[in-house]
Amino acid sequence: MSENNNNNLMLDIKDLTIHYETDSGVVHAVEGLNLQLGHGETLGLVGETGAGKTTTALGVMRLIPNPPGKIKSGEIIFNGENLLDKSEADMRKIRGGKIAMIFQDPMTSLNPVMTVDKQIAEMIKLHRNVSESEALKLAGDMLELVGIRRERAKDYPHQFSGGMKQRVVIAIALACDPELLIADEPTTALDVTIQAQVLELMKELKTKFSASMILITHDLGIVADICDKVAIMYAGRVVEYADKRSLYSNPIHPYTNGLFKSVPSIDEDVDELPVIPGLMPDPMDLPKGCAFHPRCALAMNICSQEQPKMCDFGNGHCAACHVMAKRYEL
């Protein structure tokens, strides 16, 4: 990766390790994670439940619940500055102002005893120098922007449907024009028709606000729809990182291959979907070497001994796999 390239990065996560220290053991939620995001890019962060996607996102926000969670090591470089060195007061300015987050479940993400315009206005007042009445007016504007009539501003969250609530959550996140938007499975809790609407809205607003976005999901279809780059996570690490096109046409890591094979195809008529055998390893007791080797059909001796390094397979398509590195003679 060239010097020039580095300067263009908005977010550069280096060797991030986050553990949850519980009574029954240490949960290795994120283990030496590396991730880059350029200005204006949309990155899809894909992985199974428990792969560490949400923990990574909360780590960037410095909102890991502590105790039990703790960022053990690594750097999170945002616009050239390490967020892990920031004071809590500085972080409060960044949260919401520079980096905003959309959470998974819109049903529970809004304060049930506050009208929605107040919840949006709260964000605006925190990051912009405006009066209460101006903030409420801007909150109304935001509501209209996400497709909710201004008259509903004084309603409470329980008076909205799930899709509408997620629109409110999006309005809150975008209210202060953030540079980076982290969306943590924003459509998982919604039904399919609403999913499409919300995704369309996010895509549109992302362009309008010229923000970068990290989209956390386990839905490869959504990734294909709106992402530029994709990072596949497994057991707390990024195992493959590539341009969307490159990843979809030429998946390298055996885990990524397994994921693609388990997506049903309309054209083929199969009785049973191929699945990846086995389960995600227990994050309290990760296997030695490559965490995927117990489930990998191609595993060699070295896979259970040594942690594979991220290698560039050409044009910035990176993957961490001993087998593939050998096959491609890297």
């Binding site: 905003a100 959470f103 993400s109 304060n111 925190l126 990051h127």
Partner: peptide, 14 residues
């Protein structure tokens, strides 16, 4: 532990 508390923190609230 509720999600909306996390939302409030994510806004950068004190």
């Amino acid at each position: 532990r509720a999600d909306y508390i996390r939302t409030a923190r994510a806004k950068g609230q004190l």
